[in-house]
Design a protein around this nucleic acid. Sequence first.
DNA 1: AATACGGGGAT
DNA 2: ATCCCAGTATT
Length: 363
Amino acid sequence: MKNTKVTSTFNNDEAEALISWFEASKRSMPWRTTRSPYWIWLSEIMSQQTQISTVIPYFLRFIDTFPNIQSLAKASQDQVFELWAGLGYYRRARLLHECAQLLCENLQGRFPSTRKELLSLPGIGRYTSAAIASIAFNEFVGVVDGNVKRVLSRVLAKDLGQNEHEAWVQAWMDRSIQASDSPGDFNEAFMELGARVCTPKSPSCSICPLQKICSAHHRGQTNEFPTPRRRAKVRELRLVALVLENNGDLLISREAPSSLFAGVAHVPLVEQHTYSRLSKELKWLSPVHKNEKAMEHELSHRRLHVEVHCQKILETEIRELCTHLDDSTLELTSYERFQRKPKTTLFKKVWHLASTSSKSKTP
DNA sequence: AATACGGGGAT
DNA sequence: ATCCCAGTATT
């Protein structure tokens, strides 16, 4: 009789057990020393689809450079991208910057305090709005992230991994969070449990504060929940990276095929068929030859085959290239300057390959 | 309801 | 290798 009861929602004892565990064993995170909406917001955006250990160094550099939302709003997009380079999902950085500017122009740099209002801001969706509202503003609204779905799937022995269960999980969390005194702690505790105890593989059920009420554990079925979601198919993309040098300067661009890298500076990247057309239209551009340096780069949804083409180029040729590529973002930057900047991981690999050529003269 | 969008940690 | 991470915006 107690079984069906505990599955419908958390009672005070269960919420208490979870939060006590959390208080005793939570990891230290820079943003856990504050309830500043700015800090919480930044940490949540950076943490989207990104493990906490990866986020921390980026967060510290960011907060050091932009200690408040006004300084972020005033920064150039380039400065923001530089601090984001390497973290991935670069659209997050653009939307973060837009959001900062929007709040500074319209609301004196203040965050709205309700989930509903937060949800309307750029880059802030269902999860992030609930996280900020609960942690920074004490609103009793549950978060639904990958951890919550996994933990709850196991506790209820119910398949909750699919998209259509999102609303159901949200409702369960919104109900259960009422059993807690602190919605922010409740949400963080749930996620922390998923990250540290109720892990995707080999969960540590023996130390789990929810062991007693966990249906999957009782049935010995922790590995059956949640059922894996189907994976995006990985498509191939064949690219040529143009490492073009003029008088010691390097040609860079902010465009890339398939909205890759969301405007972060790169050497020009063009699809192979585009390059073939280009090398016919532009006599000075040599065709890709067999022994061109090549590399591979994996994204979650793409396998990139990249040939790295190094060549010296004249200024008149750069103007031709702009026209034929229809790329108005091309510009020359000194090697010195660019070498030191943070780069996307793909760019680091391209750069390394270009620099270590036996015949190339680029350092 | 699907798909696009990075990069890396963990096993 | 494979899975998946404190998801969001856009088809």
